[in-house]
Design a protein around this nucleic acid. Structure first.
Lengths: 362, 362
DNA sequence: TTTCTTAAAGAGACCGGTCTCTTATTGATT
DNA sequence: AATCAATAAGAGACCGGTCTCTTTAAGAAA
């Protein structure tokens, strides 16, 4: 154990003031860019600052001002291209408004999310953007609110939390996607999501604490039921939390007695793994299995066949939520806004008629 | 303009001290977890803190200690899966050691990189990890060094800067990849990189200021020359800085009089776009064009055919550089280390014999 | 009982900025 | 020439922690 950190004696306003033969207050006015200073003195101070290579201590600055110029962002998984892209949207909007972004990963684990929020509040970020991984435990999000810092929600709404929120119409778009599959003749459609629940088996919507996924499943089931499919909830698969888990889920699903003829994947990372498993098992898309996935990830357009996707406006999602937050940071007081961005479907080549009837009899 | 920020009067040590009927110093000892305090007093203070919902102000804390517990990371482009993965490696190592990460994007622009470094130094991060976008202008990196903060370099070495560095053997692996193409019979091999230079035309290595890319081109040219290929530098293509630019470069390249029969792409984002263009032009991989890319990105294994890739140990790259930096932060004084991690090639299906001879006469 | 040692708590300076309040100087007004 | 306002610079408190130094109290040693 070292006794103390190797203090780096950096140049302070006082040092500059001394060198320029002015008071600390005056030097601070010049260096901080506030208050009124005569041109001659300003020049002197600037010269001294340059000579000494003065660098402001942002920490000290934001301690007194109470503002850090930083927006804290907590996302589920930065490696997921969905989030990378949303984060770029956030960063671009933030930079444009003179804010910086500090990024934290929750890994979709509520405890990590809480820790990240606590850290960011401790660092006195000016505001936070969070993708809440759960709707059950949102005490930490309430805390943000209570701490006086604005909070905005990305991609996932929380009915109980009245804050700026930007999402897409998950239920509606899931319905549209499901309808494409139903219209193609599918009756055995699987919905695969990373979200997990008690017992890893889907029973009903109240198990699902991620709002976007709940909405999607709701939409999916609604269309299935409308189409007269019996107990479609049987085909909802949970727990595709990692590539390995997804592979397990997919393997189990594809080797089971009644193999789905179509799959709706909740994100592109899951879809990629499912696509791999389909291939490995010697099955063809869409002849043997149809596939639609959320998020127009890079790879979906270069596979053979290219994948039909739900194109969420991911970049805009990030940009909008950041803009909403920044508006708040600038003192806007209007009631919380819930933005729902339009979403479309890119129909490519991964949907076809179901194979089972033909296959079984062949 | 609001007069002042909406001050949130947060609970401070003094508040807790008052509530617990002890001095500020004692409360601070309990809350800060240092010094000696009796068990009874400790309990009192803790109770008061809980009752008041005290949250330490990390800003104030790190101002006095001089330590922030934060590692600053400046990468070229977070959206590039290469960097996302490396950042995860960094984050994991950091978290394991009790550090947090603050991430900044340079967009491979030197000015943005400098601004990011300045910002992070201002925020008093404990150390920095940078992927230097240029080797020409490294004054800002020198500044870090001078400011007493440790710096570590990721993926790109700087001969002039004697700091901890983790890279791969870019030259060697480029040679291996090129040799695979040469051995398959190719004589017209293009190397496509995002790096740009004066005039956008490759002339010689001294134009290239990104060490990893310079190394790669060097390896590439060496093998080409050894194979007796005439002026292989003609086939080096610069400026694939964005998908649109890549498309432009690829289009120009593939419609030119002597179309390459094989392409070596400097990263997976470039390769994806090239693959798209190849497809659009009705060309086949590998029958018409062979393709190898750096980085084993997700999509490379699901295309038809799957792409032969150079598998860099990206996660390990991030993890190692973070570990090196953390070692420094803990006071290690040993001389700067330059780690070179081993790299391999996954031969998949995107390399075949050249087509031109046959194609031209067919 | 007195003195010495040690543990525990208190007082207050400090980090590096910001910002309010005060003072000195200058020019305009009558 | 005298008064007043406006401008520029200075003095010093403050933000919320940490940390050194001092004081107090209690137990051990003589």
């Amino acid at each position: 154990m070292k006794r103390t950190a190797p203090k780096t004696p950096s140049i302070t306003v006082s040092d500059v003031a001394r060198a320029a033969n002015v008071s600390k207050a005056t030097a601070a006015r010049v260096l901080g860019g506030y208050g009124v200073v005569s041109d001659t003195i300003r020049a002197d101070v600037m010269a001294a600052a340059k000579a000494l290579d003065y660098r402001p201590n942002e920490l000290a600055r934001s301690m007194t001002t109470g503002r850090s110029g930083i927006i804290g962002v907590v996302v589920g998984d930065i490696e997921n291209p969905f989030f990378s892209l949303a984060v770029r949207g956030i960063s671009d909007a933030a930079r444009a408004a003179g804010f910086n972004v500090i990024l934290a990963n929750s890994g979709e684990r509520i405890e990590a999310e809480k820790a990240a929020v606590r850290l960011l509040i401790g660092k006195r970020v000016d505001g936070l953007i969070v993708t809440p991984s759960e709707s059950r435990d949102i005490s930490h999000l309430r805390d943000i609110h209570r701490s006086g810092r604005p909070l905005a929600l990305l991609d996932r709404a929380l009915p109980d939390l009245d804050v700026d929120t930007v999402t897409v119409d998950d239920r509606g778009i899931a319905m549209r996607a499901t309808r494409i599959l139903v219209d193609a003749g599918h009756r055995n459609i699987a919905y695969v999501t990373a979200v997990d629940a008690e017992g890893h088996e889907y029973r009903d919507l109240t198990q699902i604490y991620t709002s976007s996924v709940r909405e999607r499943i709701d939409g999916f089931l609604t269309v299935c039921r409308d189409a007269g499919i019996d107990r479609p909830e049987r085909y909802v698969r949970l727990g595709a939390t990692s590539p390995a888990e997804t592979r397990r889920v997919a393997d189990e699903m594809l080797s089971g007695p009644d193999r789905p003829t179509a799959i709706l994947a909740s994100d592109s990372v899951i879809a990629l793994e499912i696509f791999r498993v389909i291939r490995q098992r010697g099955l063809r898309v869409p002849e043997d299995i149809s596939l639609i996935t959320f998020h127009d990830a890079d790879w979906t357009s270069v596979t053979t066949p290219p994948i039909t996707v739900i194109d969420q406006p991911v970049y805009a999602l990030g940009k909008s939520v950041a803009e909403l937050l920044i508006r708040r940071l600038k003192g806007d007081q209007r009631p919380a806004e819930r933005l729902i961005l339009p979403t479309s479907i890119f129909e490519r080549g991964s949907v076809g008629p179901p194979s089972n009837a033909i296959a079984r009899h062949a």
